[in-house]
Amino acid sequence: MSGFKAVDFSLTGKVALVTGAGRGIGQGIALSLAQAGADLVLADYDIGIAEEAAANVRALGRRAVALQVDVSKAESVANMIGQVRQAFGRLDVAVNNAGVVSLGRVDELPVSEWDRIMNINARGVFLCCQAELKLMREHNFGRIINLASIAGKVGFPDLSHYSASKFAVIGFTNAFAKEVAREGITVNALCPGVVGTGMWRGDEGLSARWAQPGETEVQSWERHQSSLLPQGEAQTVEDMGQLAVYLACAPHVTGQAIAVDGGFSL
């Protein structure tokens, strides 16, 4: 077809920042971006695991810098962006993945825990986007990807505070995308489904909490995959990385909240 442009999913020459990059979904996204050619800044509250993740990126032949950040604090976020500028001079892709989760019913949830979840998951996304925008505007280009959740589309029991924070991320993302839509900057939300990381697995995860009488955590995990997901199997961190690479390359997708959840949500 005359004038048809081939799809290019290369991020060679681009600089990407991932918060919460030390483990789980964040590390999976960072590795996917590196495999697509990006150099990485890997930020995490725990500098030790950020350094380990950076070593994995360097093993792929990409440059990588590890940073410590507390996304709930404006001064820490500003320092992070300052170090991105110092290391690379630009920022092309930002994945605001840092987040926390806990379980608790509304009638037993301390106000302090509500505030903690909202401060990291919602305030943290706002602070990061605000700081990232300043650096992206210098080059009239940017791809911002905010991590939400299927719990930002559908409420779950024991997760009212977490769901509220992720609903907030989706609404903020849509509004922010419209503000910068003509500046060469896109803003989207990635909504993971059922991924076998800390939120779901282990003695304190949802599988254990929602286990039926006499059911082990492993049996509960298998049952939830089968009952919740039309595809019948959990998603992976690599699945999240694939969508992140796409959104990092797509010029005309913005303001969206895209779920990778095996068909669970609308």
Rank of each mutant, 00 (worst) to 15 (best):
A74I: 00
M118R: 04
A94Y: 05
Y246L: 15
I170P: 05
F9I: 11
S102F: 08
L147Y: 04
T254A: 01
L103D: 03
L127R: 01
Q231F: 10
L247D: 07
S2D: 00
E233I: 06
F126N: 03
Y162L: 01
I29E: 04
L229P: 01
V180S: 05
G193Y: 06
L266F: 14
P110K: 12
V95K: 02
T186W: 02
I25A: 03
F141Y: 15
I25W: 07
T197L: 08
A38H: 07
R105S: 14
A87Q: 13
D239T: 12
G262F: 12
L243M: 15
S207E: 09
A164Q: 06
G89V: 11
V154Q: 13
I49R: 13
V169T: 08
S112H: 09
R63G: 10
L103T: 03
V194L: 15
N121L: 04
F88C: 11
W221K: 04
R201S: 13
T197G: 08
V7Q: 14
S2Q: 00
Q256G: 08
D70Q: 13
P192N: 13
V65Y: 03
T173Y: 01
Q35A: 15
L17W: 08
G82S: 14
A244K: 06
S160P: 05
G48D: 14
I144W: 08
A122F: 05
H139Q: 15
R123Y: 09
L133G: 02
Q86S: 14
V111T: 14
L147C: 04
I258S: 08
E138P: 00
Q212L: 12
Y45C: 09
A181L: 00
E51P: 04
E51V: 09
N97I: 06
D44I: 07
G263L: 12
D92L: 12
R201N: 14
L91S: 09
G232P: 03
L60Q: 15
C191V: 08
V187Q: 02
A164M: 11
A94K: 02
L40K: 01
L206F: 13
P230R: 09
V169C: 02
G3P: 00
L67N: 07
G26H: 03
A189G: 11
S32V: 09
R116C: 05
M1P: 03
V101P: 00
N121S: 06
A257C: 13
M1V: 00
T216P: 08
G48P: 05
V77R: 06
W221R: 10
E132G: 10
L159R: 03
K153V: 07
E75K: 13
A168T: 05
G3E: 11
L67R: 13
